[in-house]
Design a protein around this nucleic acid. Structure first.
Length: 259
DNA sequence: ATGACCTTCAAGGAAGGA
């Protein structure tokens, strides 16, 4: 089984490239983030034509996630249990489904904006809620994974130049401690291989030739329980999908499982 | 070559991204 996660930065703008990638990469399950689409405008039919059912959590202009599956959708959940509100609203940042015997969550962790900003506190609260969900599902025999845009670089090597991140979000000890908390809950990171260069970055800023200069960050992550981890045969970042006109600023992370 | 921000909402520019 092939599972992928991809922040597509608007499913409307990215639909041609998404459909092309689905046809070539042939994933069975895909976790999408940053749909940036109203629920009624979600391209359900176009995805169904390629064989994918969707579990969608969309709220219009910002955020939005989905789980696509060719291998069935059971026990769908829309929204993270216990998720905090931001400015009085629960945002569409999580969706889950059991697909072909694997429980998957698609998550879009809040950005945080700046250390000390209300959005940063919100990010840490959101991650604390995510840990609770992880702790409930991790011990089971069912392969379980949380895939998505975590907006956290796990180590200093996961950004192109750590000296430029002094005081910035995405690399703070508190954010990284939230990843350690997921490990305490029984999950472990699935480390992808790079198709080029040493570090398999997953995000490159659109500005200032970020991608050609490989000024990237590894912030799209996969955390799985023991049953998931033991089924992993391969994982890589498909940086080819970041090339050319009309690309998302993130590349897909692909995980191949033997289940 | 991978190339110097992009997307949404809406009507011009703001907001968010990281």
């Amino acid at each position: 089984m092939r599972i992928a996660t991809w922040n597509i930065n608007s499913i409307t703008a990215r639909l041609p490239r998404l459909l092309e990638w689905l046809s070539s990469a042939q994933p069975d399950v895909v976790c999408l983030q940053e749909l940036k689409v109203a629920p009624e405008a979600y391209p359900e039919e176009a995805l169904r034509e390629l064989g994918y059912e969707s579990v969608v959590n969309a709220g219009g202009r910002w955020n939005g996630v989905a789980v696509l599956s060719k291998v069935g959708v059971e026990d769908p959940v829309v929204g993270l249990p216990g998720a905090p509100e931001y400015e009085g609203a629960v945002e569409p940042r999580a969706a889950a489904a059991t697909c072909g015997g694997v429980r998957v969550w698609s998550v879009y962790v809040p950005n945080g904006r700046e250390v000390g900003h209300a959005h940063y506190a919100y990010k840490l609260e959101w991650l604390a809620a995510l840990k609770e969900t992880a702790a409930k599902s991790a011990p089971g025999a069912l392969p379980f994974a949380i895939l998505g845009d975590y907006n956290i670089a796990p180590t200093d090597q996961d950004v192109w130049d750590i000296s430029l991140f002094d005081g910035a979000t995405h690399v703070t000890p508190a954010e990284r401690a939230a990843l350690t908390a997921l490990e305490d809950a029984g999950l472990a990171e699935v480390h992808p291989r790079a198709l080029k260069y040493d570090v398999p970055f997953t995000y490159w800023d659109y500005r200032q030739l970020g991608f050609p200069k490989n000024k990237g960050m590894r912030i799209d992550l996969v955390f799985g329980n023991a049953a998931f981890g033991s089924a992993v045969k391969d994982s890589y970042v498909d940086r080819e999908a970041r090339k050319g006109k009309g690309a998302s600023d993130h590349a897909p992370v692909v995980v191949d499982l033997e289940v």
